[in-house]
């Protein structure tokens, strides 16, 4: 290509386009290649990983996965992670939608104060409350329990959910609620029959944010859990970089197990996920 002279405008435009394509393809390869490498390396025996890092496995073996699950107890941790993600996300959605309805549509003198006290949670960094939280959880006896982890996850994910939900419910016209009230509907009836069905888009956004945050959360799970019955998957995967750090095959298998669910979900729902991040990402922080 170097001997082509770029004297006309058209050639320049094509050249630019080519450059842009190359740039984007490099980005795509940079994203995909490490993941693909990790995937096929997880099927190699350890000697092959060390000798031929780049090569495809000669024959695909599953023993890495079986061992990783057995030694790393990933099956227990995966169940814990699933419980944390499902329960926390469900609770966050129910609580945040109820709170959003109240903050947006049931006005009294305490509303702004209560609303702002939730929004303060958006500004607090987790590390700031880590030590007091650790001490109080230990005293209450909730440290290293599933209930304790779920409570923390719900609490740290509520502020963003309530913020997004309240902004959304505010846009629903008051007249809809008033006409339902005239027809004799209770607040509960209005909430379940009018507000919830209309809030589906924002509920999807909240679901995505909360589920991703709970499934991937690491630091709190590391600090607050110590026994097998309450550890989550990220902590289990991290434990492979301790004494087992040279068991590359097992470690790779554990990494694949940890990220596969999220990649599958992303492949299915990437439009909703990116839209959710565009809506919520600018607010978080």
């Amino acid at each position: 290509m170097s001997n082509v002279t770029l004297n006309t405008r058209k050639e320049q435009a094509i050249f630019n386009k080519l450059l842009i394509y190359i740039l984007f393809i490099i980005f795509a390869i940079l994203t995909l290649y490490p993941l693909i490498w990790l995937f096929y390396s997880s099927f190699k025996p350890i000697l092959e990983i060390i000798r031929n890092a780049l090569a495809l496995p000669r024959d695909w073996i599953f023993s890495n996965y079986i061992q990783a699950i057995k030694i790393g107890k990933l099956n227990i941790y995966a169940v814990n992670s699933i419980i944390y993600t499902f329960v926390s996300t469900g609770l966050v959605i129910i609580f945040s939608m109820m709170a959003s309805f109240a903050f947006a549509k049931i006005k009294n003198r305490a509303t702004p104060f209560l609303y702002n006290s939730f929004l303060i949670g958006l500004l607090i960094t987790i590390q700031a409350i880590l030590i007091p939280l650790f001490i109080s959880m230990t005293r209450i006896g909730l440290r290293d329990t599933r209930l304790g982890i779920i409570m923390i996850y719900v609490a740290i994910n509520l502020p963003l959910a309530i913020f997004l939900g309240t902004e959304y419910v505010k846009a629903i016209p008051d007249s809809l609620i008033e006409s339902a009230q005239i027809d004799g509907a209770s607040y509960f009836r209005i909430f379940f029959s009018i507000i919830m069905p209309m809030c589906k888009p924002v509920m999807v956004t909240i679901l995505i944010f909360t589920a991703l945050a709970c499934w991937n959360e690491f630091m709190l799970a590391l600090v607050f859990t110590s026994s097998d019955s309450s550890r989550s998957l990220p902590v289990g995967i991290y434990s492979f970089s301790g004494p087992l750090a040279t068991e590359y095959g097992m470690q790779f298998a554990a990494l694949v197990i940890g990220m596969a669910p999220m990649i599958i979900l992303y492949a299915l729902f990437h439009r909703q996920i990116t839209r959710g991040f565009a809506a919520g990402g600018a607010i978080k922080g």
Binding site: N216, I237, M262, L265
Partner: peptide, 8 residues
Amino acid sequence: PMVISTII
């Protein structure tokens, strides 16, 4: 990469 756990 945003949807993959940062520890992974």
